[in-house]
Design a protein around this nucleic acid. Structure first.
Lengths: 244, 244
DNA sequence: TAGTGGTCTAGACCACGAG
DNA sequence: TCGTGGTCTAGACCACTAG
């Protein structure tokens, strides 16, 4: 039962049942960290199945981080892992509409330029090239909800050069067009400077949550975006399980 | 090569090379969303291997969310997924030491009590029971780094009742003892109140990053902890891939 | 050196679901 | 109906490493 949900019902398949049995032992504490799990051939006897079937279960457990496998020694329950969270990051429109408020998007500024040193630092871009710099507002009802500052690497996404982003926010536009292979978030608290304070209609120095995201596609930097939220308007929530 | 890192070097194993080849096709856009991937038996001919080997690669791609598999129809490239982030959250000691600063822990307060209504709300606890309330400081050098406010559900972790937490911080103590099966984070920016301002040696009203974490073990609430960081002292960083 | 996990094979049967 | 993926088998060889 303990893995229900993590594994979609240990249901029909045998390797899932093996996986489920073992992870229950681990999560319940019956098998403490360091405990040696039965060898593959032992489990294949115990479950009356081939070693491949056991291997499939144990490989998944290893990939999930619950156990560690060592040749010649066996498989061992790992110490509780450094925590890994699965953080869902929704489209801001959906976020606003979930609050029951009307969503409005506004493009504040758009500049096409050759990347400055600062742009290249944000994008982790090695060489100079054209970028698109955008500034956008996201509103919930009449109130500013989030302020967006974005750079798009036009070398990676040349078709963005022709987009005005007046009607469509760059986030959804990119998501529907560029498959991303890797991303990085930086989340921090800052005091609002005058520019942000004006954009969010709050006082200078008021606390804000900043979420920065860098995205890569096949190792090419695609975009850097900084969302700034007034403190009271936004909480990031992440619900997760060990080693997803 | 585009998957280098996702798969630790498509290196030796054939199923990893198959996986790597296909994901490169997808991430590069050569195979657009909706594109039908060759059948398992076709790939097994193409790579001159057994269907099991192909199946292993395609199963991983499906689990990673890059493709969708339908019986009788084949396997298809999925549309870009909703974003999911893996957020690593380290032990504060490790975080501080990574900055090259000496770490110091200090227990500020400890109260054992019957859970109040507020405690039960924080722990998402249905019934009243004993809890341990802790307040702790984490220092980097001489400077306060983070302030910790924690509740431990003594019904779930009775042995914590006898711990003073003077030498050991509750985080590492719990992690080494209670396997967690689920957790929830809430991350937000706040203005420091007087209590926090004094604890972190900052001014009242200064922006702070608050990370709250609730943890469950086998569906029993274990602990609720709130870490407060002065804005300039802390950034959460999360690097991740689609559908982890 | 011997035993473990890592990988792969060449089959097999079944469930599902599109036609 | 019948081709697809889902699962499993009973072997095999190899790489790594603890003793």
């Amino acid at each position: 039962m303990s893995m229900a949900g993590t594994v979609e019902e240990g249901g029909g398949s045998l390797h899932q049942r093996i996986l489920s049995d073992i992870s229950e032992k681990i999560l319940s504490g019956a098998w403490a960290p360091g405990h040696r799990i039965p060898f593959e051939h032992e489990l294949s006897v115990q479950y009356n199945c081939s070693r491949m079937t056991v291997n499939k279960a144990l490989s998944q457990l290893a990939k999930a981080g619950l156990i560690e496998r060592r040749r010649r020694s066996g498989s061992f329950v790992r110490r509780p892992q450094s925590q890994a969270a699965v953080l869902e990051i929704h489209d801001i429109r959906i976020e606003v509409e979930a609050l029951g408020l009307p969503y409005r998007y506004e493009r504040v500024a758009r500049h096409k330029r050759r990347s400055s040193a600062g742009d290249r630092a944000l994008l982790e871009l090695g060489v100079a090239g054209p970028v698109l710099a955008l500034e956008c507002g996201h509103f919930a009802g009449e109130r500013p909800f989030a302020h967006e500052q974005r750079l798009i690497n036009l070398t990676a996404v040349p078709e963005a050069a022709d987009e005005e982003f007046v009607a469509t926010a760059p986030g959804p536009w990119l998501i529907g067009r560029v498959p991303w292979s890797e991303a990085e978030h930086r989340i921090r608290a800052v005091a609002a400077d005058r520019h942000i304070a004006a954009a969010l209609d709050i006082e200078t120095g008021a606390p804000c949550l900043v979420v920065e995201r860098r995205t890569w596609s096949a190792e090419h930097p695609v975009t850097h975006v900084r969302f700034t939220y007034a403190a009271e308007s936004h909480t990031l929530v992440a619900r997760f399980r060990p080693q997803g």
